[in-house]
């Protein structure tokens, strides 16, 4: 297991955002996290990535207890994440944004540049290499987020609604990218609302409701889970 969450909880002065989540993720898996808005998915990501400290529970990553570690420490151990609303380093170009990520694992500017080039190639951003990050289209900005996180050579990558706002062709391209990342050996946790993508690329799906795990299983199992349908999915039109 590359990631083990045991009863992880987060309270904000009376508001329970995450309510005792227990979850195991095996290395190399592509796991989808779905659920209603406000169910606690992004908060869960923030807890895993270290942006928030849990109010209770344990988080184990690659065999080590990381519960009390800060975000930068977890990043150094191999947990990378993207933000729901892309936060590019606006005044730098695409290449330098990705280099910023590459510098996480190397001190050499030359090596960082070559890692960045590699990642940019993988994420299909070569044609925009020198563009100013703030001027990108939404789809490209999201890909930049992924590229930058990838450049840190993570073991676990958390993607937060990376397909939101994308057109169908862009969604397919994003799915391809996720599969390619997974093929390179990175474990993926993906928060998504785009059901088509989740059901077709994830091998396991976790449903979060009111801060807790409502259901877990293969896409097929989740689709036929009556509770999930009632709470979130609604009657499926076409998948």
């Amino acid at each position: 297991m590359i990631l083990k969450l045991r009863d992880v909880a987060k309270h904000f002065k009376g508001l329970v955002a995450v309510d005792g989540v227990t979850l195991d993720v095996a290395p190399g898996e592509l796991v989808g996290i779905i659920g209603r808005n406000g169910a606690g998915k992004t908060t869960l990501f923030n807890l895993i990535a270290g942006r928030l400290q849990p109010s209770g529970g344990r988080i184990e990553f690659a065999g080590a207890d990381v519960t009390t570690l800060r975000a930068y420490q977890r990043a150094r151990r191999g947990i990378a994440r993207t933000f729901q609303v892309p936060e590019p380093l606006g005044r730098l170009n695409v290449l330098d944004n990705v280099k910023a990520g590459a510098f996480a694992t190397t001190a050499s500017a030359r090596e960082a540049a070559s890692i960045a080039e590699e990642v940019i190639e993988l994420c299909n951003l070569r044609h925009k290499k020198n563009a100013e990050a703030a001027e990108l289209t939404l789809a490209d900005m999201k890909r930049l987020e992924v590229a930058r996180a990838l450049a840190t050579r993570p073991k676990l990558l958390l993607l937060d609604e990376v397909m939101a706002g994308l057109r169908p062709t862009e969604v397919s391209a994003a799915m391809e990218l996720c599969r390619a990342i997974r093929a390179s050996g990175v474990t993926l946790l993906v928060i998504e609302h785009v059901m088509f993508a989740v059901m077709n690329m994830c091998e396991r799906v976790v449903v979060i409701e009111q801060g807790g795990v409502l259901a877990e299983g293969t896409p097929g199992e989740i689709l036929s889970n009556q509770q999930v349908v009632d709470v979130y999915l609604g009657r499926p039109k076409h998948v």
């Binding site: 975000a71 380093l89 910023a100 510098f103």
Partner: peptide
């Protein structure tokens, strides 16, 4: 430059 721009992003990139 990263820290100057956005400290949160800097942390996700392993920078303290």
């Amino acid at each position: 430059a990263v820290v100057r721009d956005n400290e949160d992003v800097a942390e996700t990139l392993g920078v303290r």
